[in-house]
Design a binder for these strands. Structure first.
Lengths: 148, 148
DNA sequence: TCATATTGTTTTGATTTCAAACAATTTGCG
DNA sequence: CGCAAATTGTTTGAAATCAAAACAATATGA
């Protein structure tokens, strides 16, 4: 007895204790979600879209605060913004404190974001296809209690 | 009005629509979980431990089947197993089909895994600290319905 | 004023992953 | 059986993603 109770664990392999671990299920879920995202929003990664959304909600935000917000190092943010700036989606403007750069969406950035938002809405529906509205809300809440 | 309802979104920044997206919450949760894992199980990543658990549950499993099970390319598996073999945690043995390698845990691999399992149990408890047993089960179930 | 802190940057390196091409081997069709 | 086609593990090359350390410019505060 003791057949593992799971949908499609690992292509015929015995998944062992993995399916009982939150971290493992998170990884699988994220993999699925990211792949759907990549297939529906082209040319830009989930993380980069997240960055744009953050800049949209906080125009002129500083690079360091952005880095802190997404849990990355300051030095990591440099390359990310270089990319986004090379694509003309954001621009850096010197702040009043001349050490800082304020980050702003360009017109192209706002336009891409508007298009992306529609794609994301569809994406989100596919992701939650097997969940009722209440279950989806519950999932978001539980995830919020895991990820501080 | 319309203060975003979230715990600690992004260090004082307006998180925008992100907290309403499953993918975003998954990423945050996974980040938290992986960091706790790294802090409690030293010298080996969650993915690598998962690999060992899979090999333990399926002694002699083939590299290709392992790759399929974890959703990686065959060529990716080569480097991963090279690492684990360099650490003397697994070994490859030629199979009856001489194209294939069977993967097996070494004594050291079993020993490390036994130790890791205890650390993982503690880790799992910390991760689910803010969840009741029922909530934890619900989370696993909902995640299973996201990540095919 | 001047020691201290912060900001963005550069450089370096680690990690993880895939794709394409390849030899060895097996399988299956005729 | 015999040989074309598929499979397996591998090598090579490349692309993302990220962090740590050191640095110059600038701001802060005692």
């Amino acid at each position: 007895m003791s057949r593992r109770t799971q949908r499609r664990p690992a292509a015929g392999l015995d998944p062992g204790p993995l399916p009982g671990l939150i971290g493992y299920r998170l990884r699988l879920a994220q993999q699925t979600v990211f792949r759907d995202f990549a297939a529906s929003v082209h040319g830009i990664s989930p993380g980069r879209i997240g960055m744009l959304l953050l800049v949209e909600a906080n125009p002129g935000v500083t690079q360091s605060r952005l880095a802190l917000a997404v849990g990355r190092d300051r030095s990591t943010m440099v390359g990310v913004l270089d990319q986004l700036e090379a694509k003309r989606l954001v621009e850096r403007r010197k702040g009043a404190d001349r050490r800082t750069n304020g980050v702003w969406l360009t017109r192209a950035g706002r336009s891409l974001l508007a298009r992306a938002k529609r794609a994301i809405a569809d994406h989100e529906q596919r992701v939650a296809a097997r969940l009722s509205a209440a279950e989806r809300a519950k999932l978001l809440e539980l995830l919020g209690r895991i990820g501080a």
